[in-house]
Design a protein around this nucleic acid. Sequence first.
DNA 1: ATTTTAATTCTACAAATGTAGAGGATAGAT
DNA 2: ATCTATCCTCTACATTTGTAGAATTAAAAT
Lengths: 121, 121
Amino acid sequence: MTLSNAEEQLMQLLWKKERAIMKDLVEAYPEPKPATTTVATLLKRMQDKNFVDYKQIGRSREYFPLVKKKDYFSKHVNGLIKNFFNNSPSQFASFFTEETNLSKKELEELKALIDSEIKKK
Amino acid sequence: MTLSNAEEQLMQLLWKKERAIMKDLVEAYPEPKPATTTVATLLKRMQDKNFVDYKQIGRSREYFPLVKKKDYFSKHVNGLIKNFFNNSPSQFASFFTEETNLSKKELEELKALIDSEIKKK
DNA sequence: ATTTTAATTCTACAAATGTAGAGGATAGAT
DNA sequence: ATCTATCCTCTACATTTGTAGAATTAAAAT
């Protein structure tokens, strides 16, 4: 099960807010904001797909994500790695390092980080 | 313009082959192979989207990608970075390093690579 | 109590996507 | 010259996606 684009966009809003009621969500959209019913439809579809759930709070529902952003994201990246790098994360990593414009400072930081990862092993 | 899933899958085949005629493409699919017409439809849509073109070779067409895998891929990753990391490649990088299960050896290699990138700056 | 506001569900519909048959064109085999 | 294997275009259709109106409900404001 995957989220469609529109659903994913909404999911991003929900991740940012952690939990939110309809109104908050609609308002969180940049202009042009969608109709409330549109968001409602998306939310319902996302519930069917088990990506969100809600808790009845008084008169309205407080929606919250059932999937952690990190996990969702991981799946994405792994998909990319599988499709583009023959399932080799290290190939991906080197590609990424070469192609992305990290500043010298960022590279240094990344290196330090990798160092600490190495120590963990 | 983006490729749909089915289109992207076909694109992967095309990138692998560099150039290919219909038959090759259909055969390159894993089972169950799609109908020739299905592939034809996808190819046409991909032409409309300017992702592939072809060269008439004798009786049939030799299709080839108009977009480099690298570029296409970059766009994807940048999209991810934008959506998930607030547009910060370095945040992405650290997440990636922590979350992906690179072996010690892979990490060492990556470190070396980063070093050489640093030197370039 | 009545009006207003917010939320929810149902229904709808256009566009995009996934998939493929029918029919036509043509190059190569016989 | 005819048949056969390929490929292409056109057409079609079910599913998914993006979007939202209509109707309903319920709570909040007056």
